[in-house]
């Protein structure tokens, strides 16, 4: 595959696109983990949502 005289620019464009995509995926994944962890911590402290509270004694 020959990218011609402007190979640098083409590679840079794809690198930027990949970097942005990876950043978005990382943001979504890390955010999910963080929110799950806080929810779990809160549940362990006995703080739950009303809909889940009936099961408790």
């Amino acid at each position: 595959m020959n990218l011609g005289a402007h190979a640098d620019f083409i590679v840079a464009a794809y690198a930027v696109a990949i970097a942005l995509t990876v950043a978005l995926i990382a943001w979504v994944a890390l955010d999910y983990r963080a929110q799950r962890r806080i929810l779990l911590e809160l549940e362990q402290q006995g703080i739950t949502r009303r809909s889940q509270r009936e099961e408790k004694p």
Partner: peptide, 27 residues
């Protein structure tokens, strides 16, 4: 498809974030 996947995942995170906020306010 990438947009849709990321958007649904981000919506899921946002719902969880609001739950966390409610629980922290209760706490």
């Amino acid at each position: 498809l990438l947009f849709l996947t990321l958007h649904l995942a981000a919506m899921r995170n946002e719902i969880l974030r609001r739950r966390v906020r409610t629980l922290q306010l209760m706490k």
